[in-house]
Amino acid sequence: MSVLEAVIRSVAVVAAFLVLPLLVGQTEHKFMAHMQGRLGPMYAGGWHGWAQLIADAAKFVQKEDVIPAAADRGVFRIAPAVALIPYMAGLAFIPIGDGIVGADVPASAFAVLAALGVGILGHLMGGWASANKYSMIGAMRGAAQLVAYELPMVLAVASVALAAGTLSLSGIVEQWQPWWLLWQLPGAIVFFIAALAEINRTPFDMPIADSEIVFGAFTEYTGLRFAFFLLAEYAGIVVMALLFTVLYLGGWAGPLAASLGVVWTLLKAWIIAAIIVWMRVSWPRLREDQLHRLAWVWLIPIALFQLALTAVVVVMTR
């Protein structure tokens, strides 16, 4: 890999990291509005408010960066970066087409999971350093949630990796067959629920439950740092949707995959993201104890069952 290629790939990943979350955000704006009988943003940019999120970013840049007097300033400052960068790293490992990937590593499935697990550290740091009880509660909820849902998620991914016989996401897509949709269905459901919980989306948004604890770990944040946290949240949706597409929906598999592969991947991921938005509009938030009950009583047994099923089928067919 030459230096030029590395630079191009890095720039491409950063561009995707900045653009795709905005697309998801705009989708959320519009879907949410129409699902509630509204129109959503209509002004910014002229056509149906397409530039609303860019305008929001411009607004956030102008805002004052307030740091609470009692806060731990250093930790408070770097927390948004710690929350944001793991998602960027995760995005770099996910292929969106045959050979189109930021960094093609042998164990990319594992690498994405490892990167995503670090993201919560930013919430924890921000929540603790804000010197605010709501921030603290939000951070603790987020950490407990992550620890609870990381396990079923890793087990579900392990099942797919076992089925494909590789830890590489590109390899998994190459091995993917349409009948895996049924074979890996329990794992897919577990992965989807765990992914929702990891990125704090409704119905698992207790860490930022605005009606209970203001805005969780982000309560004290303003301006650009707050925007970074929000960007991390939407980047989380992008990463999870792409990962789900690649693991369970065959990535770029589809008609004319050779030329339209990237379009297929992005379209599938966009549909997943739209479903995530749809759930946010439709469903209430779970209670904290229900969240943990769901993880430990339902998801982990189902994930273990899926792993066993996959192992049995793999052993029988090979």
């Binding site: 590593v105 042998p106 164990a107 594992f110 690498a111 999971l113 490892a114 990167a115 995503l116 697990g117 670090v118 919560i120 550290l121 924890l124 929540g127 603790w128 603290m136 951070a139 603790m140 950490a143 407990a144 992550l146 620890v147 990381e150 890793v154």
Partner: peptide
């Protein structure tokens, strides 16, 4: 590579989270 990823996933992603959680 694998050891490094496990280090990230288990230690940074889970163990330290628990440690900080307990500290909090």
């Amino acid at each position: 590579e694998l050891v490094g990823l496990v280090q990230l996933l288990i230690y940074v992603g889970a163990v330290i989270i628990l440690v900080i959680f307990a500290l909090m």
